[in-house]
Write a protein that binds this DNA or RNA. Structure first.
Lengths: 404, 404
DNA sequence: TTGACTTACTAAAGAGTCTTAATGAAGAAT
DNA sequence: ATTCTTCATTAAGACTCTTTAGTAAGTCAA
């Protein structure tokens, strides 16, 4: 997976480093494995009981863990059960798409407390920011959560978020969303720390964490919907490249069987213009298909055997084969998960796919369909938001109390 | 560059971990910065003098560092100078290509002690393995180094080395080289530990370590010669994918302006068949160019203004633009270095390149030509071999002496 | 040559971390 | 009630690093 080149040994360290390493390790273990007694933890992490005891006492002092009853399974003295304090933070995750806003509210463990889906009816980014807030408020309200209890928000957005001028670029489907200082606007309107990240990257994280890509490394999630893109997960982290544009394969300069023309759709990207949802509809129409205004319809008709729809799907398969071969050639992932409005139809798209792949190259990508469906990006946003919030809260608590 | 997703805190650790961390850190510092006095090291690495003293005494005991005279620059008492012991290991690096074998011999610091270039006249892999040994022997012999003093060999090979059946695949240019148990054959013939890795990946490491890509992250080296491929360097390590095939872009399913035909060169790869050295010659011939049997010749004639040669180069530029856009869309590297027999002609290929890139997408890859030329792969192999040897020697020494 | 100054080295004491081992506490089994 | 089992706590020991203070070995200037 890597050719390591020496280097990168950890920096020089004092004894106190051990404490913080182990503290972090035990906390993460609790997040991942749920409540446990101290002897259990001691055995699991390989540290002696006194060390585990002292560390947990520390974490309890700063409010990151708490006790919850006693174990009753043993023959001997009952053990105290420790668990992470889920109330230490609450996360709102929002997937902002051209057609829908999807919200999930979760605690620090990742348990979904509320869920909502709202049509995107906004006409300007200002009202879209407002819609985000309303969506969070209504979702949390229904679940009986105070809006003020929410500590962090994470936004899944198309395009690339640029830190330097705090705006989103390459989000051709949400033109007004691209204006400068979007981050400040969101933060001030929502009244809490906000994280903005690419929707496909977060979807990749979702599918990697709880979907078809669990434990796979390296992993690629291919999204084909109103836009197209891939998310690349390497060693459990999303690779974003130098400027955050890694995986923006809408810009790939090929359009399937047809040769490139001189006038290309530079802004949306050549492949996106040829391959995303709208182009399926357009292509099917050019072949004489009538009454299909959305890609979903085209696929429906193809299932029924309508010739021009079938032909349009076949063209999609052709392009998909080329794309999958490209992904393999560049990234050689262990698995590619295909999702998104178009991608979900892998049953149809997959007809003849294997043969075509085999024809194109000796590479053998493993491909499966997404299992999380339309929620994949929000789910990934939750995963990511939980990590961000944990990090922030850990840092804050550690700085606040034992520093004194 | 990454969206980290929590996790991956270091495992639980005992105090002795600090010792080994600092030991490794100081040794690596010495490898990287050269000889230094103990007070200098202490200031540089941020550890107290007693700690540095003790650590160096340890490293000296196991023969990894040694003293070399005294510092004379100070007003006070002269300090002992410590340096890594370069004789602790010697590395032979061999770039095995279709036409040439290139050898470099280096010490553990990376100083080149010998260099040789031999035409590849082998007809079978057996004699090619023999040639590798002869090349190493003659290179080291000329420099007065005993063959037996060499402790590690690293082979830069086209294709992908598969650990499981210890053979190389995808090396269409060296058909006999692909046979099973190549590794054992090499190890037994050479009589020392051998490492086999992809030539382009090593070239990327070379260009990243000592060429145009120094300090760049992420970094892509694009090789265009008898074969084509990219090496991807992320955080100083080469990314190789799940099976080692990452960057095998010869298999990309596009062939430039022309549409794909149904009969594609599946084994060599579609892009490789359209874009690598041989195809330039063939294409130029089809345009009526005479007397050009090699790609070098075609480029020479293009420089002189011969029309069909110029046209062939122009086609290369066209394909290159599409390829660079693809690399950006997938990987978004900070810099792409172009090398190899064809790639070195970036002055010619670059004509009109920027315009075409701009036409294809809004992505803006930074591109420069390789500075290491034909030696890039051997140089990378040396870098890598040094790292491998250091690792092995450190592990061996640590296990041997203080374990008692 | 001598004394002041500068820097390198060494040794001892102190603080932080972990572990092992011994002891006490709380429940189940007999 | 006694014994067994497991959890919890405490004390002692080992390892690491740092700080501090003292000694050694040079340069520089009078």
């Amino acid at each position: 997976m890597w050719i390591r080149n020496g280097g990168a040994s950890a920096p020089a360290a004092a004894p106190s480093l051990l404490r913080s390493m182990n503290q972090r390790f035990i906390l993460d273990w609790l997040y991942q494995n749920g409540p446990a007694t101290r002897p259990q933890i001691s055995r699991a992490v390989g540290l002696s009981q006194p060390t585990v005891f002292a560390t947990l006492a520390n974490l309890e002092d700063v409010g990151l863990v708490r006790t919850r009853g006693q174990s009753e399974e043993s023959n001997g003295r009952p053990a105290l059960i420790y668990e992470v304090d889920p109330g230490a933070g609450t996360i709102a995750a929002v997937d902002v798409g051209r057609d829908w806003l999807r919200v999930m509210v979760s605690d620090l463990v990742g348990t979904i407390l509320a869920r909502a889906e709202v049509r995107n009816t906004a006409r300007s980014s200002k009202s879209l920011v407002g819609m985000v807030k309303e969506a969070i408020a209504s979702a949390s309200g229904e679940a009986g959560i105070e809006y003020t209890a929410i500590t962090h928000t994470i936004i899944a957005s198309p395009g690339v978020y640029q830190e330097q001028d705090s705006r989103v670029i390459y989000a051709a489907q949400l033109p007004e969303w691209q204006r400068p200082r979007l981050y400040e606007e969101l933060r001030d309107t929502l009244g809490m720390p906000v994280t903005i990240e690419n929707d496909v990257n977060l979807a990749a994280l979702g599918e990697h964490g709880e979907g078809a890509g669990r434990g796979v490394n390296p992993f690629v999630y291919l999204h084909i919907g109103t836009g197209i893109g891939i998310g690349i997960v390497i060693d459990g982290k999303v690779y974003t490249g130098a400027t955050g544009a890694a995986g923006e394969i809408g810009f790939l300069p090929f359009a399937g069987p047809e040769p490139l023309t001189d006038t290309v759709d530079r802004e949306h990207g050549i492949l996106e213009a040829a391959f995303a949802a709208d182009s399926v509809v357009e292509y099917a129409r050019r072949l004489g298909l009538e009454g299909a205004t959305t890609a979903v319809k085209v696929f429906e008709l193809a299932r029924k055997g309508v010739a021009p729809a079938k032909k349009a799907v076949q063209r999609q398969t052709e392009i998909l084969a080329a794309l999958l071969t490209s992904i393999s050639a560049f990234l050689d992932p262990e698995l590619i998960v295909v999702g998104g409005g178009i991608g979900q139809n892998l049953d149809l798209l997959g007809v003849g796919l294997a043969d075509r792949l085999n024809q194109l190259s000796p590479l053998r990508p493993r491909i499966v369909a997404s299992v999380l469906g339309v929620d994949v990006a929000v789910r990934g946003a939750v995963t990511r938001g939980v990590a961000v919030a944990r990090e922030a809260i850990f840092a804050e608590r550690m700085a606040r109390i034992p520093g004194a």
